[in-house]
Nucleic acid binder design. Structure first.
Lengths: 352, 352
DNA sequence: TTCGTCAAGTAAAACGTTTCGGAAGTTCCC
DNA sequence: GGGAACTTCCGAAACGTTTTACTTGACGAA
């Protein structure tokens, strides 16, 4: 005979009493069950409005076995890139009544922490951004029976995913440079996975393929993989320019590194784009300010689409086993750093 | 006689049965109630481990009337500043088992959307970042009886808060410039509230006060408030330089605008710091790259501390009515753009 | 009329916790 | 030895939904 504190919350029972129906009927109205007469439905609605009734989320969650919340995991929140994806996700979720719980990864080791949030009783689904989805993750998702979507995924991940065609992005950049007359085109790429510096990236493959298609020589010494930072760009350029036959154009795997390249070029007394053409990647905030020609990756759209895909899984429109794969193609944004527009002057760079 | 699907979840009842105790005892063990004998406690723990039992969050939430989740509301996620605060919040929450639900504000109108998340049955508390806390918000928080903390708050908000001493920050910058010999120090500030361009900021007040303390002339035409963007900095500098007696030093209310100032200076053929000394504000990512002297606002610390304050409210260590106020003081970071280090060359700027 | 069918609604059983109100045992005090 | 006072544990009542299984009444068909 335990009685809790006599709080004054309006419950579904109150609504039922006032409306003169059973609680089940109110619940049906709440959930849009068609098996309730229009007249009754309206009466119930009226009473709910009158009493200011709002179903208790926690009670619903327990009973329905779903939380109406999603998990979003993304690395390195600092980077503009990921923040934009997050906004896209948020946009897609705005109209729904899903909330989302955020977990950011700062180092790979954080993954073990984030994985603890993969729980059926915490969220209804997971949205993984730019992550190396390890077997541990897959097993956990499987065990918890959580639908998941990966945004900006490795093409091979066995989950629903949005894949960016980075090879095509590289091809766009390289082809553009070749059209401008460049024969010696180098590449400074970032590690493909933010945390795994091993694998060679699809971007790099696209670069090679484009050179071959264009009938240009493939030189191993023109390929550099440096850290995903401004410094990474600086060291990359320095090492390229020490070559006996330095390149005249560089495709850089991130705008962040490209900024470093611009700075280093200035430091070396090179004029961009006259002495050196540069094309970046991503089209982050600063690219426009720098006058940087770059390959735009539609970040918001990726986030939005990934969220929509997850919603489709949750609504059952996509069967649990059914995997959806969508490809997204980047596009070239021409500014001054490649030399196609304007002349020699006009590109941001820096002395040191 | 309704029987639900026969899922195989391990419940507290199973644990009780195997351990040979009542469910209440298991619950007590779970919640660290001291009124349970050590031997029993250990036995229960062993059984829990053996069965792999994990209490269902949703069931706990319903029964305890708390969700173990917090609400974080912050504007303009794009800005480095806010992202850093978010990371601080996350850091503080990492050790706890609180999750957080994120709501970002892109325009002031979004507030009405975000406020819908202020619900007792969704979260246990709210963390408001850099927001103009309107009466609507206060009323809602009050109605839902949600403890709240404001990070980077207006000093007058009647909630627990972390207040940044922007007046002191401005004083640091101006004093530094004066010590370097500058007499004509102008200011380009950003609007105080991201969305309300009305009020004059505490930063501006600090600027004025510092000039007075230093015995320098206060000139109305040396004060500019421009948009919180690179362009804002550009237009600000242009208009200042058209004055009959232009300033020799400028304190800028955000690094973002300061970047614009540097670009515009270059465009005007001014050498920084020789012809013009510049001090920014915030110390965001790019400040170091730009060689920008700036006032560092400890963003992570603000986020972390705000979260800790909220946790204290939730744990009851801070009474519901009791308001905690903590001040945070910025510090000066000297780089090249003010002329205190090195000489004329060396500051990033850009042609157009 | 009688039966079956269907629509609309009801009462009560889950969902898996926490916690209330006791109830056994112990220990201790007079 | 008879409570009183603890300690330690138990059964069952909340918490506020959803959903199951059933009832009631209306309507047609036979």
């Amino acid at each position: 005979m335990a009685k809790r504190s006599g709080s004054s919350r309006v419950t579904i029972r109150d609504v039922a009493r006032v409306a003169g129906v059973g609680v089940a009927t109110v619940s049906r109205v709440l959930n849009g069950d068609p098996a309730v007469a229009a007249a009754t439905r309206e009466r119930v609605h009226a009473v709910m409005a009158q009493l200011g009734y709002q179903p208790l989320r926690t009670a619903r969650a327990l009973s329905r076995r779903r939380t109406d919340a999603l998990l979003v995991v993304l690395p390195l929140l600092t980077r503009f890139f990921y923040v934009e994806i997050l906004r896209g996700i948020e946009e897609a979720l705005l109209e729904t009544n899903y909330a989302f719980i955020l977990r950011t990864l700062e180092r790979p080791a954080d993954g073990s922490r984030a994985i603890a949030s993969v729980r059926r009783d915490l969220v209804d689904g997971a949205l993984l951004v730019s992550m190396a989805v390890t077997p541990v993750w897959l097993a956990r998702l499987e065990r918890e029976r959580l639908p998941a979507v990966v945004a900006d995924a490795d093409p091979a991940v066995p989950l629903s995913r949005i894949v960016v065609d980075h090879a095509e992005g590289a091809r766009l950049a390289v082809t553009h440079l070749a059209r401008l007359g460049h024969q010696r085109i180098a590449v400074i790429d970032r590690p493909d996975d933010p945390f795994a510096e091993k694998r060679i990236s699809r971007r790099l493959l696209g670069y090679r393929q484009a050179l071959q298609e264009l009938g240009l020589e493939l030189r191993a010494e023109y390929e550099r993989v440096t850290p995903f930072s401004v410094e990474g760009g600086i060291t990359g350029l320095h090492s390229l320019m020490q070559l006996p036959v330095p390149p005249t154009a560089i495709f850089v795997g991130s705008d962040t590194q490209a900024w470093g390249v611009l700075r280093a070029a200035r430091q070396l007394g090179l004029d961009v784009p006259r002495d050196l053409a540069v094309v970046g990647y991503h089209d982050i905030e600063i690219a426009e300010l720098l006058g940087l020609t770059t390959v735009r990756v539609p970040m918001r759209a990726i986030g939005r689409r990934a969220a929509q895909l997850l919603l489709e899984h949750l609504s059952g429109r996509l069967a649990p086993g059914e995997l959806a794969v969508e490809w997204v193609t980047p596009e070239l944004v021409v500014r001054r750093s490649c030399g196609a527009q304007g002349t020699d002057a006009g590109v941001e760079s820096a002395s040191e």
